[in-house]
Amino acid sequence: MRVFYLLLAVLALVTGGCRELVTLELPQQEPRLVIEAELTDTPGPHTVRLTLTQDYFSKAAAPVVEDARVSITDDAGNSQELLYTQNGVYATQGLEGVIGRSYTLRVEWQGQVYESSGVLSLKPVIDSLVVQYFEAIPPFLDAGHYMLFYGHIPRGGTRYYRFKIYENDSLYNDRTDLLVPEAEFMPDTLREVRLGYAFTPGDTIRLEMYALNRDMYDYYYELRTLLFNDGGLFSPPPRNPTSNIRNVSDPARPPLGYFQVASFATDTVIIGEETD
């Protein structure tokens, strides 16, 4: 799909068209609760961040919610209330993520109760990360050191994954970095999968591979569709990604955001010498 944005760019060049900033009178809406909750197969702390939506053109940081009650319960009888830390973030203390267990998030705020559940899926396996130099193929590929990924999915693992790439501990997080491979195309074994980043020698690159639940995969998929939306001409009309959290008190008013329950595998490589 993304190929078409490139083609459109070529066409715009031919026709002398252009992009420019506009100011629009935008409609307003009451602030809505945004929940970003993540739980992994580690001892934690696992965090839940609560913020509010604000006007689109606002220059302020997102308003945070500090007075909510947040808890996570697993299906083995463990339950824990999260403590507020700062910047809208609530954290667990010693609640361990165990593969195969189901976790339920509960948020209470201003008389509304929000809930979501997810299962910690089997961990994917990273066999190795290999660095290889590639010559430039404009406009698709810059010259540089690329990482080739080798890994596999255990028997009984899911088809839904997200990759995160960190360069020197900073996450690549542009809309093009939302690496969520198509579930239909996902093989059991991944060999020589080149990640589309040209690195320079000396970089420390960390890769994380998350095993998602289906609803979380759909969330990322819809989020990416929204981030690439062209205003609805060649892409579908923009809409909020479907949250996997429901409002128990008032189902017609779901919150924004997600509860991601995901095991993950990680590996680090230092760019320098070519490895085989």
Partner: peptide
């Protein structure tokens, strides 16, 4: 007729326009 954002949210490290899902193409 288009859908315009009614706000924005911070989600997963992105700043995302927020739409009113009951006002498709209302603008």
């Amino acid at each position: 007729a288009v859908s315009l954002p009614v706000g924005k949210a911070e989600v997963a490290g992105f700043t995302v326009p927020v739409y009113d899902d009951s006002r498709r193409n209302a603008f």
